[in-house]
């Protein structure tokens, strides 16, 4: 979670200090805001811990502030021409799958499932943008590294929880593996370059 938090802070600090969101995919950031919104609908109904509640609020705030920076405050620096990933290619399959494969057919549960599936592919517009322009600022690569590391660390956490609590969540685990795989090529480049 701290790796995830660090990633989001890095991105915000980068945008704020440079007063620019060049090289950042607004579409990926909108998807992340949508991920947190649909996942944290239980913010007021399902209390886990103070840590859990505080982190949810911080994640939501970070996501929305980032979107605000890109599409409002620093919109003149937004590289709209290169942020061309077609969101419907992600949203249509993800919506379909969240209705087909979920734990229970209730609105909040389907939306939670949607958020898990969507998160696994939400970075693709950003990765597409980088491959299209062929460049990324150093700070952007740090952002991506910690964002990918967070899900890779969750894989270890899930193995630990299965061993110690016999707890496992197939939807999270399969999506988490898929999500981590999308970062592998990037991890390789990050470490070698």
């Amino acid at each position: 979670d701290l790796s995830h938090l660090l990633a989001m802070f890095l991105l915000l600090v980068k945008i704020w200090r440079s007063k620019s969101c060049a090289g950042i995919s607004g579409k990926s950031q909108i998807l992340f805001a949508l991920v947190f919104t649909t996942r944290y609908l239980d913010l007021f109904s399902n209390f886990i811990s103070i840590y859990n509640t505080v982190m949810k609020v911080v994640f939501l705030l970070c996501a929305y502030v980032t979107v605000y920076m890109i599409y409002w405050k620093f919109r003149k620096t937004f590289d709209n021409e290169n942020d061309t990933f077609r969101l419907e290619f992600l949203l249509v399959p993800v919506i379909g799958l969240s209705f087909l494969v979920n734990y229970s057919y209730t609105p909040t549960e389907v939306l939670w499932t949607f958020s898990i599936y969507l998160e696994s592919v939400a970075i693709l517009p950003q990765l597409f943008m980088i491959s299209k322009t062929g460049e990324a600022e150093t700070i952007t690569t740090h952002y991506l590294f910690f964002l990918g590391l967070y899900r890779a660390l969750y894989l270890a956490n899930w193995i630990w929880r299965y061993q110690t609590e016999n707890f496992y969540d197939q939807i999270s685990v399969v999506s988490g593996v898929v999500q981590t795989i999308f970062y592998c090529d990037f991890f390789y480049l990050y470490v070698t370059k």
């Binding site: 995830h4 399902n46 734990y103």
Partner: peptide, 10 residues
Amino acid sequence: ADLSTGHDEL
């Protein structure tokens, strides 16, 4: 475990 309720991960 009932996985349909109480997701405790972020």
